[in-house]
């Protein structure tokens, strides 16, 4: 496990691409910023690759921001587990989590998302979103959002959904002459890019490479 402290006013930004294991424990001091991307990308992995991502972030100072983005795009018998634990120990901070899985063939995904807002952590704004698409009948997704909110004056939202590609959108695209396979690829590409575009300026080259890779899947 990696223990990190992000000091007052500092920014920590990192993209983890296809790591078999990410294990982070981060403490944030007042006014610090954390932005993490964890990407598990099937194109670079072997058929039965497994990965576990554990990311725990504690806001111990006021006015912190935390952003966690996780994307797993899997096929074969690949398995990815992503666990996040965001703790607002003091008030005035924000946290945003966007977790997406695209699961094809017999791949499996698991998301456990703990969000804790302690009693004294007023005026916190915390959002957790988990969206998953199953591209086959044999793919499997388990999702467990866990919210513990002890403060009164906070804004907290969470949402989790697992489904298939939108049939009405597929038909609409086919009606315009777009082949069924291409239409699926366009929809999956849009779903994935939504996460990739949040990769920051410091990782411009990587973001562009990944966006192009998605287009490569589409072309």
């Amino acid at each position: 496990m990696n223990n990190l402290t992000i000091h007052s006013g500092e920014t920590f930004e990192q993209v983890f691409l296809n790591e078999p294991s990410v294990d982070l424990h981060i403490v944030q001091e007042a006014g610090s910023h954390v932005k993490i991307h964890v990407l598990n990308w099937r194109a670079d992995g072997s058929n039965d690759a497994q990965a576990t991502n554990r990311i725990a972030v504690e806001q111990q100072g006021e006015g912190c921001s935390t952003e966690i983005y996780a994307l797993a795009y899997l096929n074969g018998q690949q398995q990815v587990t992503t666990e996040t634990r965001v703790t607002h120990a003091v008030g005035g901070g924000t946290s945003d989590q966007l977790i997406k899985f695209v699961l094809d063939e017999e791949s499996k995904g698991r998301f456990v998302g703990e969000l804790k807002i302690e009693q004294d952590a007023q005026k916190v704004e915390a959002h957790q979103t988990n969206r998953n698409i199953l591209l086959s009948e044999t793919a499997e997704m388990r999702t467990q959002p866990q919210l513990e909110i002890y403060a009164d004056d906070v804004k907290a939202t969470h949402g989790a959904s697992t489904g298939q590609l939108d049939d009405t959108a597929l038909f609409y695209m086919q009606q315009r002459g777009i082949g069924a396979q291409k239409a699926r690829q366009l929809l999956v590409g849009a779903f994935i890019k939504d996460v990739l575009v949040t990769i920051g300026e410091d990782n411009n080259a990587l973001r562009e490479r990944l966006l192009n890779a998605v287009d490569g899947i589409i072309e």
Binding site: D166, T168, A169, F171, Y172, M173, R176, G177, I178, K182, L186, L187, G189, A190, F191, K193, D194
Partner: peptide, 15 residues
Amino acid sequence: VEIPGVSMVNFMRTA
């Protein structure tokens, strides 16, 4: 139908 994330240009050029 609304298709989030697929731009009109990309959609139309593909079609």
